[in-house]
C-alpha cells in the first residue's frame, strides 16, 4: 500500500509551507483555482474575493454539485478533501443566507472556500454533494438541522443533533431566540410526553423482529413510507 503525500503534485522542488505572517485583510495571493473555475464555468461563477489569505468564490447555488465534482476530479485541481459544509446567516435580514463549502486540495496544498447565496424568502434548497464526498452526509444533515436548508439528492436528510420530532424550528437561524421558541413549561411537558419509540427512525423499526412488535398505527405509517414517527 502506497503512502499519499500532500503536496505531491507540486514536485520535490516546491518549498515547504511555512506559518503565514502579515496576512492582509483584503487582497493578496489568489488561489489559482478561482481563475480556472471561472474560465471553465463562466455562467456559474459569480465573483471571487481574498479575505485574510483565503480565497472565496461565489457560485450559483444550483450548479454547486457540478462545480465541486469538477474540482475534485480535474487533474489540475484535485480537491480530494472536503473540510466542511456549513452555512451563514447574517444579522442583516436583507442579506441572503450563504452555504459555505471548505475544500482542500492535498496534492496542490490549496484551500478554497465556495459560497452560494440563497434567498431567505424563497425555498432554501442547495444540491447535495454527498455523492461526491461521503463526508458531506452528516455535515449536510447538520446544516439542514440548524438552518433548514434542504440538500437535494441527499440520501437520508433528517435532523442529526436535534431529535426528529423537534418542532421549534432551526436553531441557528437568526430569528430563533437563544432560549428556544417554546416556553420552559411547554418544553418540559413535551419532553415528558415523548414516546420512547419515537427515538427510532422508521428505517430502524423496519429491521427484523422490531417490526412485529410495533403498534398497528405505526406499522401502517411505515407502510406509507412516513419518516416522522411521532406527530410533531
Amino acid at each position: 500500500m502506497s503512502i499519499v503525500f500532500p503536496g505531491a503534485a507540486l514536485g520535490a522542488a516546491a518549498p515547504a509551507p511555512v506559518t503565514p505572517r502579515g496576512i492582509p485583510h483584503r487582497g493578496g495571493d489568489v488561489n489559482p483555482s478561482a481563475a480556472t473555475l471561472a474560465a471553465r464555468f463562466p455562467d456559474a461563477v459569480l465573483r471571487h474575493e481574498v479575505t485574510w489569505g483565503d480565497t472565496t468564490v461565489w457560485i450559483a447555488a444550483p450548479r454547486a454539485r457540478q462545480l465541486i465534482q469538477w474540482l475534485r476530479d480535474d487533474a489540475g485541481e484535485r480537491y480530494d478533501y472536503l473540510v466542511d459544509v456549513t452555512a451563514v446567516e447574517h444579522r442583516d435580514a436583507m442579506r441572503p443566507l450563504e452555504v459555505v463549502w471548505h475544500l482542500r486540495s492535498l496534492p496542490f496544498r490549496r484551500f478554497l472556500r465556495l459560497k452560494a447565496e440563497l434567498d431567505p424568502a424563497a425555498a432554501l434548497v442547495a444540491p447535495s454533494i454527498s455523492a461526491v464526498y461521503a463526508s458531506a452526509d452528516w455535515l449536510e444533515r447538520e446544516v439542514f438541522d440548524m438552518f433548514g436548508i434542504r440538500f437535494e439528492g441527499h440520501p437520508d436528510l433528517r435532523r442529526i443533533l436535534m431529535w426528529e420530532s423537534y418542532a421549534e424550528g432551526h436553531p441557528l437561524r437568526k430569528d430563533f431566540p437563544l432560549r428556544g421558541r417554546f416556553s420552559r413549561a411547554e418544553q418540559l411537558s413535551q419532553a415528558l410526553a415523548a414516546n420512547p419509540e419515537a427515538r427510532y427512525s422508521m428505517e430502524e423499526l423496519s429491521v427484523a423482529d422490531a417490526f412485529h412488535e410495533l403498534p398497528e398505527d405505526m406499522k401502517r405509517r411505515l407502510q406509507q413510507q412516513a419518516r416522522q414517527v411521532e406527530g410533531a
Binding site: 502506497s2 499519499v4 503525500f5 500532500p6 509551507p17 478533501y81 492535498l106 461521503a134 463526508s135 455535515l139
Partner: peptide
C-alpha cells in the same frame, strides 16, 4: 479521504496529512 477522516485515523490509512506540516 472520501469519508473525511483526519488526524491519526487518516494517517493510519496511509495519508501523510498533518496540519502542522501542511498548513503550519
Amino acid at each position: 479521504l472520501d469519508s473525511g477522516l483526519s488526524g491519526p485515523l487518516l494517517r493510519a490509512s496511509g495519508v501523510a496529512y498533518d496540519v502542522r506540516k501542511d498548513v503550519p
